[in-house]
Design a protein around this nucleic acid. Structure first.
Lengths: 225, 225
DNA sequence: TAGATTGTTAATCGATTAACAATC
DNA sequence: TAGATTGTTAATCGATTAACAATC
């Protein structure tokens, strides 16, 4: 069977993949990529085990994209991989800009995982004059005032915010005005953005606090019992 | 009214805060901390606006901890702050170890937000001999073989994994064996852990791919329409 | 009292999963 | 054919939210 093209996929998908499913697709894709190169098919059971989910959930998630598997056999690894790549929009490259060149920002600029998935970081911005002109990764830090020009020239589609919390909303306003429609926010603040703009928040403090919640409620239980 | 103590809170909470609620508590707490110091009360409407959620959701979430507000008035900011801190287990300090001193690991070691919330990073580990002995933040990188000793000596309760994907499961096995019950995993892999161990995954590639899913499905829509 | 806002109910929506007929 | 595994149904579970009586 041929790999489905963008048009066909778009028709099948018909605009309604549940958000919980979307969040699992990257995990499935990575699981498939990690499989030994010799493995041609993969069952929902095996995929579920690797991805850490229920096998019925795997089948249900994948069923949104059509009947992909073969009963009694499983899914063709290559086909499924192609389909997920297509579904996630990974058949093209994306230009990314980073705003905020502190510790975290610099680590992100050096992050090797970007290129592996077709993301190219094209610019790093900061507002501190000390930082402008310095080098992170293979980029020279530019002043934020250059943002609009770069976004237009390089057709940037994703902005990564790694500023302090206080600056994040202003930066978000600015990058959405410049035409960017996808934001990955590492600043610990909830961003207000216009309709049609996607934001994913990655917040270290929040994650740690969720862990301590469980730690301390477990402690309470043992104290009570 | 006095700030509720651990024992009282544990009794009220009675072991069943929905996970979706738990994930929002840190956001509420940070929202309250950001309020002007002069503001004594806060309505669910205002808190919802700052936290980016529905006001009914704020009231429902908080109601799991008892009747905290005053009808016609709102919530007392100081009391609510204390309650959330207590609920999240933030009334004590936590020792944290970091495994993996690459780009991301080093950024995390330097992350200033830790101390603000009562987390102390007590050690950084790596397996590469080149890195052992080097300094990140204010810590000297130790070889992973010292892990068990440090965890025991410093009563470490949280492990942060920032290794490559291939090493993450082994490290997870090792730190759970050493007694750690909470893991923050920055490696792009799904960890298998024993019951009673909490894992939070923070995965840059996954987040980017969720963004590109929306980017490309939006592109399909415009193409179709 | 009048206005404001909580706490809670109940409706709705969405996500998960067991089960199994279909079928390779 | 016998065994394996999908695709889908339907039950269940959990999360969200509108609505409003209670009450400050």
């Amino acid at each position: 069977m041929a790999v489905p093209g963008r048009v066909i996929l778009a028709a099948v998908v018909s605009r309604t993949i549940p958000t919980a499913t979307v969040a699992r697709l990257p995990v499935y894709l990575r699981s498939l990529v990690e499989l030994p190169a010799t493995q041609e098919t993969c069952s929902s059971d095996q995929l579920a085990a690797i991805a850490g989910v229920n096998s019925a959930q795997v089948r249900k998630d994948l069923s949104h994209f059509g009947s992909l598997g073969t009963r009694g056999v499983g899914y063709n690894v290559g086909e499924l991989r192609s389909l997920l790549r297509e579904a996630l929009g990974l058949t093209r490259e994306y230009s990314v800009v980073l705003i905020g060149a502190g510790n975290l920002g610099s680590a992100l600029a050096n992050y090797p995982g970007f290129e592996a998935w077709g993301f190219e970081m094209v610019a790093v911005f900061d507002t501190e004059q000390d930082k402008v002109g310095q080098i992170v990764g293979d980029l020279t830090i530019q002043h934020l005032s250059d943002l609009e020009k770069v976004v237009a020239d390089r057709e940037v589609s994703i902005g990564i915010i790694a500023t302090p919390a206080g600056a994040a909303q202003d930066v978000a306003d600015r990058i959405t005005r410049s035409g960017i429609r996808s934001i990955l926010n590492f600043a610990p603040s909830v961003l207000q953005v216009p309709d049609g703009v996607s934001v994913r928040r990655v917040d270290l403090s929040t994650e740690l606090q969720i862990l301590t919640f469980h730690l301390s409620s477990r402690a309470d239980e043992s104290a009570a019992g």
